[in-house]
Simulated scan of single mutants.
Amino acid sequence: MTTLSTGLSAYTTPHPVDMAQELAGANDWAYERHNEDELTMFLSGHYADLQFRVFWRDDFKTLQFACLFDIKVPEGKRDEIYRVIGLINERMWIGHFEFWADDNAILFRHASLANDPMTGAFGEDHMATVVETAMGECERFFPVFQFVMWGGQSPEEAIESAMLECMGTA
């Protein structure tokens, strides 16, 4: 797993979206700040470009992450995508995958409570860990979606193929 540079200092403002923006800057990721409580970071994964959206809900002291793949699901494969998402989510400990039919988008989503729900403080290590986890899950399961959409595999076959652990290097 890649360890990200936080780029944060002891004097950083505690607002979680500010922290996500500093994380993006420290890792040379392009980003767009939509408002005080929303940011989109643009990351390049091994398999695809990712849009990583961060939303702060002050009333719940919760940060929501949504990581969207830069892929579109062919019309005839939607049922298989729903099925494979169900199978993948059974294996997930943190977060889950979704298919948004209106946007034709596959995404990983997770919400995380602030470290200190009274103040809304969100630690920089927590921020980096959540982003690393989301990126890792997207990288891990991207081939599964590709195998179903373009490889002609069933959801079960795709998961089995993608979950093989290779030893060594070629």
Score class of each variant (00 low, 15 high):
A128T: 12
C67T: 11
A134N: 07
T133C: 09
R91D: 08
F122L: 12
P117L: 04
W56T: 04
V84Y: 06
T40C: 08
E98W: 00
W29Q: 13
Q64K: 03
F52D: 11
F55A: 07
K61E: 02
R83P: 10
L63H: 08
S5T: 03
S9M: 06
P16I: 02
F60Q: 12
E124I: 05
F99E: 00
A30C: 08
R57P: 02
E36I: 14
T62L: 00
H110M: 12
A20M: 15
P74E: 08
G76F: 05
P16M: 04
L63P: 06
F97K: 07
E165D: 04
D59T: 14
E132F: 01
G86C: 04
G120P: 11
H96L: 07
W100P: 07
M19F: 10
N115W: 03
I88A: 00
L113V: 15
Q21I: 06
I85M: 02
L63A: 05
M19S: 04
V17I: 15
Y31Q: 14
G25H: 04
Y31E: 12
N89W: 06
F97A: 03
Q153F: 01
F147H: 13
E139I: 03
S112G: 13
N89G: 00
D79Y: 08
L8I: 14
P143I: 08
T6Q: 02
L50M: 01
R83T: 15
G95S: 05
E137H: 12
M167I: 01
W29F: 14
T119L: 09
V131E: 03
E80N: 06
A162S: 05
F55D: 04
H96M: 09
I85P: 03
G76C: 03
F99Y: 07
T12Q: 14
D125T: 15
A48V: 15
D125S: 15
E156W: 01
C67I: 09
V130Q: 14
W56V: 07
E165K: 08
F69A: 04
P117Y: 06
F142P: 06
M135W: 09
C67S: 11
D70Y: 13
I85R: 03
K77T: 10
D70Q: 14
M149P: 05
F141H: 02
D70W: 08
F52K: 02
M167L: 02
E98L: 01
Y11P: 09
A162P: 02
Y47L: 05
R57I: 03
A158R: 05
H46R: 04
G86A: 07
H34F: 07
M118Q: 12
A111T: 12
E22A: 14
G152E: 11
K72N: 13
E75F: 09
L4P: 00
I106D: 04
G151V: 10
S44C: 08
E157M: 00
A114G: 02
L50T: 03
L50H: 03
V131A: 10
E80S: 05
A10C: 14
T40L: 01
M127I: 09
V17E: 04
D79R: 14
E36V: 14
A26Y: 02
E137I: 13
A20I: 13
H15M: 12
L4Y: 03
K72M: 15
S9T: 15
Y47P: 02
S9Q: 04
E157T: 01
R33S: 05
D49Q: 09
A162K: 01
L107I: 01
G168Y: 00
C166L: 11
I106G: 02
